[in-house]
Design a protein around this nucleic acid. Structure first.
Lengths: 128, 128
DNA sequence: CTCTATTTACGACGAGTATCGTAAGAGGAG
DNA sequence: CTCCTCTTACGATACTCGTCGTAAATAGAG
């Protein structure tokens, strides 16, 4: 039987907390990496910060409900809670991952350019 | 001809900047209010902070690309850039607004400090 | 048992920022 | 014109938080 670390239940996930968790660049990068490798430990993640800092960020991501962490001996591999987040906030995580250019290998065609319908066009208006 | 304040162009909107803008509770509340009233000035928004602070937050929201501000005499009514955001990050803003109840109580984050718990598997994920 | 590798808890420090009060522009009313 | 309201720019302050180094806890290997 696999053991997991404590994490918020599905209906306990707060959108404000999730946004706060995803607001940090390092944490957003962790989410991007986990989107690619599916599962990884703190030391395996290639990040420009120390491992203790990575552990701190993964904790925040888990407490916010973004990732879940499994206990495997001394290792703590984490993965994205894709289905949970998609069920709770449909389209949120997917749009964030799709819109992230730096490490995204362009999986599919970018969003079609349907020439905005009613959006403000700053260039066509007087801007102060 | 309407005059608008400077704002980032559609393809200049960065998802990390947007997430950082939406991470603040006061700004998220502003977004919620603008979702209901469609357009409002800083003084008209009912918020527990001073007007100068509201203006500061609206500036951040505009620079991140979340809202656009019109110049109407001395007034500066702002509104959500719904179509732009939907076009750039499909499903992001809508999922956030859908997950945020209009009169939601302040989410006091429960101090779930049970990190090393190695507790039972989360009920949402049945593990072996 | 000892030894080592992995992870996290704990302070501590520094940068970023949310908030405020005040004051200065800007535009409408009289 | 003057007066008033709305908005924002500017410091100043307090506080959150991202980062680090160190140490403790855990589990596997020898």
């Amino acid at each position: 039987m696999e053991t997991w670390m404590a994490q918020p239940d599905l209906d306990e996930i707060d959108v404000a907390t999730v946004l706060q968790a995803l607001a940090d660049p390092t944490r957003l990068r962790i989410v991007r990496l986990l989107d690619q490798v599916e599962e990884s430990t703190c030391t395996a993640l290639d990040l420009p910060v120390k491992v203790s800092t990575v552990s701190h960020h993964v904790n925040i991501l888990r407490h916010s409900g973004v990732v879940s962490t499994r206990i495997d001996g001394t290792a703590r591999p984490s993965r994205l809670r894709r289905d949970d987040l998609e069920h709770r906030f449909p389209g949120l995580l997917s749009s964030i991952l799709a819109a992230t250019p730096p490490c995204a290998p362009e999986p599919a065609a970018p969003p079609d350019r349907d020439d905005r319908g009613a959006g403000p066009a700053p260039s066509a208006r007087k801007v102060v």
